[in-house]
Structures are given as C-alpha cells and as structure tokens.
Amino acid sequence: MLSIKNLHAAIEGSPILNGINLEIKAGEVHAIMGPNGSGKSTLASVLAGREEYEVTEGSVTFKNKNILELSPEDRAREGIFLAFQYPVEIPGVSSTNFLRTAVNQVREYRGQSPLDAVKFLSLMKEKMKLVEIDQKLLSRALNEGFSGGEKKKNEIFQMAMLEPTLSILDETDSGLDIDALKVVANGVNQLKTKDNATIVVTHYQRLLDYIVPDFVHVLYKGKIVKSGTKDLALELEAKGYDWIKDELSGATV
C-alpha cells in the first residue's frame, strides 16, 4: 500500500530525514518510535504533504501513485489521514460545516455523490459513538476551547468520518490520561480493517498496549535503525533509547 524508498527531507536546508525505507501492507499496524528530534513527526508531516518540508531524495508511492507530486488535499482524498500532534483551533469555522465540506470534497474526488444534510448527520451520529465525543463539542467552532483529550478524540472522529486507507497518528497519545488514551485507542481499533493500515508515531510504549502493532521501527537521526515486533517496543521501554544510541555508536566505532 505504502512504499517509502530512501526518503530524504529537509526543512530550511537542514536535513531531517536521511534515507527512510518502509513498506506497509494493507491490514498492518506499524509503530514508529524514537527519541525526540529523531524525525518521527517530520516523517508524518512529509507523508501528509506539509509544504515547509522539502523532499530532497527518494520516493513515496501510495497505492502505486507517486504522492510526493500531490497536494495535501489530494493525498487526503486518496486516503491518507494525518491525526495531528497539535490539532489546530479554528475560530469561526463550525466543526459540522468543516466536516461536511471535507467529506463531500473527498467524495467528489472519489466519484461519489455528495451526502445531503440528513445523511451526513446520521453518519456523524454513528461515528461519534466510536470516540465517545460529545455532540455539544461539534456544535462549536473547530477545536476552539477543546481540552487536549477532546482535540485528540476529535482527530479520531474525523478519521472515522473520512474513512482513510492509511492513517498516521502523530503522537496522538501524548498528554492523554489513561481514560482518554483507552477511548482513542478503542476508536482506532474499531476502525481497523483488513484493507486499511495505520502508522502510529509515538514516544511512549504505553499506547502500544492498546493499539497492538505488527511492526515496530526505531527512528534515530532521520533513519530507521532497528525494526522488530512489539517486543522491540517493550525492550525500548525497559532500556530507554540510550541503548539504541550506544549500540549504534558501538557499531560505527
């Protein structure tokens, strides 16, 4: 589904990603872990098409399309969803109006007819249950005055509405208490099918108790330096990232 080959990316001339290789197949959950500044969020941003990042080398194909040539909106319409680390508050834009615009523009791209108000609202009601999001929140402006947990729930709710084939959760767990974490993870798990895939970018192993990954990759200095199963995450949790750093410096000396 997603194939990343030798991906290099830089921001304002300074390289952040230094040759990422990653293959993701339908039905898989991949966790990307790594210390601060290793490039985790950059990878998520580059996949979603954030324009500040410049791809200097390599390729990313999604469902056999070169997505690096696509605008952020077209990537979303193709089925890539980024759950933001810091969801943006947008005063004056109502959550409902925003979602309806998004859903219908995505449908239009996919050659589907737009949802009318009634169908849209019933879809919303159905998906709201997944993340136990309060309807009152959705009558407010997008993310405005939402708590940290509410913002993250809203991300997963949007994911449910847009039905992506590849979801990238960028530190969705950061700052959540255990109850909110369970709700978010439960939502993600319910949305999992054999046809879609998930990339979970996280700093903490804790999330992976609830969203169980098929593969765990460790990112360090812009490269995947170690890949394994969920046991790797447990090992990281026990030993910390220094272990990886030491192992790497040991290997190069």
Binding site: G49, S71, E73, R77, G92, N97, L99
Partner: peptide, 27 residues
Amino acid sequence: EALFYLRARGIGKESAKSLLLYAFAGE
C-alpha cells in the same frame, strides 16, 4: 497551520482559504 489542517482533511486550497476568511469576517 490552519490552512494546512483543512487541506489535510481533503478540503481544496481555495475552499480552505475562503472558509478561513469567511470565519474571520463572520465575527
């Protein structure tokens, strides 16, 4: 940031801009 957020949800650049500007004027 807001513009990218809207676009990342599949809303085209022009509509995203006009949504944001309309929200600004709406107040």
